[in-house]
Amino acid sequence: MAQLLSTCFFILISMQLADSSGVFELKVHSFTNTGSVCEQSRDCQIFFRVCLNYSLDVTFITLLCNNGTVQIGTFDADQSFISSSAPITVPFKFKWPGNISLIIEAWNEESSSDQSTENWYRMINRFTTNKRLAVSKGWSHDVHRGEKSELRYSYRVVCDEFYHGDNCSDFCRPRNDPFAHFNCDATGNRICLAEWKGEYCAEPICSSGCNEDHGYCEAPGECKCRLGWQGPLCDECVKHPGCLHGTCSQPWQCSCKEGWGGLFCDRNLNA
């Protein structure tokens, strides 16, 4: 029961959650009542109660939906109702599981502002949907018909901005600050800005030709030499201090040219 309580969400029109990863949206398009459902239809109004459970197990859903009432609109019980209101939204902050059990109940409101669901005889009809629902911008449409009524509605699941993937769990928000420099593609992959590289696009791209082993950069377009190397591209070794007529292939060497010797290649062997 505790697990079911943790996964059952009551839909309230005013519900707002911050930092969600996605949103379940529900539109009620029309409700048609084909018979008299109120003892005094002149004063009778209808409201809906909606329950959404993120699994295909509807066990105990009715018990868990107490206080899950939502006023979609007031209308005469013996007339048709067409809704043009915005979708009802239920944000979630977890990986979308892909399954839903949706219950929509139509109830009598026998008196003004009385939306009690304790008396079951006042429930006009109940419509239940159990299915797998993938993340998509497209709407799934349903029509449920009962003995006294017909309900047309649609629903979908969409990821919030910066969330991507089949379950809205891949987060990618563009940034350009000292820690990262990237944009995001439609699937949530990081796309480095020009002159940056690396997994998080935090490594600057050095100037063209800068030796990858002996040079580095702290900002794009630079080429700073590591100890023992020099030159515009950091590909020239630094000779041993005092080396006069010598060369090097590695830092601090002093390999004498022909005709010269000594520790600093300063001794003329032809003298």
Rank of each mutant, 00 (worst) to 15 (best):
M1Y: 06
Q3R: 14
Q3W: 13
Q3N: 15
Q3S: 15
Q3I: 14
L5F: 06
S6R: 14
S6D: 13
S6T: 13
I11G: 02
M15C: 10
Q16M: 09
A18N: 10
S20A: 15
G22C: 06
G22T: 04
K27Y: 05
K27G: 00
K27L: 07
T32F: 11
T32A: 13
N33A: 06
T34V: 06
T34H: 13
S36W: 10
V37W: 00
E39I: 01
E39W: 03
Q40R: 14
Q45I: 00
R49L: 07
N53L: 05
L56E: 07
I61F: 05
N66L: 02
G68A: 09
G68D: 04
G68I: 02
T69S: 09
T69C: 07
T89C: 07
T89L: 05
P91Y: 05
P91C: 08
F92D: 01
K95N: 03
K95F: 00
W96A: 03
W96K: 03
N99Q: 15
I104C: 03
W107K: 09
N108W: 02
N108V: 07
S112N: 04
S112K: 05
D114F: 08
Q115N: 12
S116Q: 03
E118L: 15
W120V: 08
Y121R: 05
Y121G: 00
N125M: 09
N125S: 12
F127R: 02
F127M: 09
T128G: 02
N130V: 12
K131G: 08
R132K: 15
R132W: 12
K137M: 10
S140H: 11
G146R: 03
K148L: 13
S149V: 05
R152E: 14
Y153G: 02
Y153A: 03
Y155I: 06
V157Q: 02
V158I: 08
E161I: 08
G165P: 01
S169P: 00
R173D: 05
P174A: 05
P174E: 01
P174F: 00
R175T: 04
D177L: 01
D177G: 01
F179R: 00
F179V: 01
C184Y: 03
A186R: 06
R190M: 03
I191H: 05
C192E: 06
L193N: 10
A194G: 09
E195S: 15
G198E: 09
G198A: 13
Y200S: 00
A202L: 04
P204E: 11
I205G: 12
S208G: 15
C210Y: 12
C210Q: 10
N211F: 10
H214N: 14
G215L: 08
G215R: 04
Y216L: 08
A219R: 15
P220H: 13
G221A: 14
E222F: 04
E222K: 07
E222N: 04
L227Y: 09
G228I: 01
G231R: 06
L233S: 12
C234G: 03
V238S: 01
L244I: 01
H245F: 08
P251W: 00
K257F: 04
G259T: 04
G261P: 04
L263K: 14
F264P: 00
C265A: 11
R267I: 13
N268T: 11
N270M: 13
